[in-house]
Computed example of a mutant assay.
Amino acid sequence: MNWLVDFFGDPAHWSGPYGIPVRLLEHLEFSALALFLATLVAVPLGLLIGHTGRGHLVVVVSANLARAIPTLGVLVLFVLLLGTASIWPVIIPLVLLAVPPILVNTFEGIRGVDPELRDAAYGMGLRGGQVLGQVLVPVALPLILLGLRLSAIQVVATTTVAAYTGLGGLGRFVIDGFATQDYASVFGGSVLIVLFALVVQVGFTLVQRVTVSPGVSRRLKVRDSGATSR
């Protein structure tokens, strides 16, 4: 408790180029950029593979990579290759970390849509792109958002490693605190990272409530309650 008071009660931590607001903004910028780039890659690819049924091996490989990829090792590799003059040695490993959950959940969401619903859409005269955009994506949206949420939380937590390359972010409090044995800074930085991840979690929950249609939400609740009763 004393560490919290020492860290958050110190006015120096709330102003200047190394204060909490600046570090928080840096952390947000790194995380948002990595998640944005991962979304640009993973969502269209997941939609395409899920809708056509072709290339599912890519999803399997991606899921396995998500478990095997050593983010810190990849970070060090890209730092050695690209140097520390830009943010890309940090962004690239974060994108590689964020792509698999988005890709897998997008694919599973599209493939998991009831085939009868898909057939009914074709029977109404809708074409491939219309079926995907007007029928499959709205039904699969909860799983797609789940993938985005999982990736966002992982990225926010892992962006801490940006401090290893000399870049900013909330990880600076943790890394610099360990280096100087300032454990109040280590503890305070860790708390900020956890709170940031919780805010992201709540944010995606609110987005899902706004964007997912009530009919799909009710259907998910019925399915989950049925699975629980079994």
Rank of each mutant, 00 (worst) to 15 (best):
T71C: 02
G147H: 06
V200P: 04
A184H: 10
T205E: 14
A66C: 12
I175T: 09
G112E: 01
T211L: 14
V194Q: 05
V137T: 03
A227V: 11
V60S: 15
V60E: 14
R54W: 10
S185P: 08
H51W: 10
V131E: 01
A152W: 01
Q181H: 09
L136S: 01
A197D: 06
V191E: 00
G109V: 05
P44A: 08
P93T: 05
V131Y: 00
G215E: 12
P100L: 02
F7I: 03
H51Q: 12
V131C: 06
L65P: 15
I102H: 09
G171F: 05
L25D: 06
L94E: 13
F8L: 08
I69A: 08
I49F: 10
L132H: 05
V61R: 08
P21R: 06
S185I: 04
G129F: 02
L35I: 14
E108A: 15
P101C: 09
S15T: 15
V191K: 03
I92F: 14
R23N: 09
V22H: 13
L206E: 08
S86M: 11
A184C: 09
L33T: 10
T228D: 11
Q134K: 11
L40A: 13
L141P: 04
I144N: 00
D176F: 05
D224C: 10
P142A: 04
I144V: 00
V216I: 09
T159A: 12
G188L: 05
A197Y: 02
T228H: 14
T160N: 02
L24A: 13
V43L: 11
R111M: 08
R149C: 09
D176W: 08
F196K: 00
A120E: 00
L143G: 03
T39K: 07
L28H: 08
D176G: 07
P70Y: 15
V61N: 13
A66R: 14
L33F: 09
V61I: 14
A32R: 09
Q208N: 08
L4R: 09
V99S: 03
L170C: 02
Q208E: 12
H13Y: 13
L48N: 08
G129L: 02
A38M: 04
T205Q: 11
A162M: 02
H13I: 08
P44T: 11
A98N: 07
L35R: 07
L117K: 03
W14H: 14
F78E: 00
G169P: 05
A157P: 00
L103M: 05
L192P: 07
L57E: 15
G128E: 12
T39E: 12
A85M: 15
L72M: 13
H27G: 03
L117D: 03
L136D: 06
L145A: 04
L25W: 07
L81G: 15
G112F: 04
G16N: 10
I193N: 02
D10N: 14
L192S: 01
L141S: 01
E108S: 15
P93L: 10
G189C: 03
G166R: 00
L192H: 04
V199H: 07
P89Q: 02
F196W: 00
L97P: 03
V210M: 14
L145H: 05
W14D: 15
F204R: 00
Q201T: 03
V156L: 03
M1Q: 15
W3Q: 15
F178H: 10
L96K: 09
I87G: 07
V41G: 12
I92L: 13
W3M: 13
I110W: 04
D6Y: 15
V104I: 10
V61E: 13
P93E: 05
L195P: 14
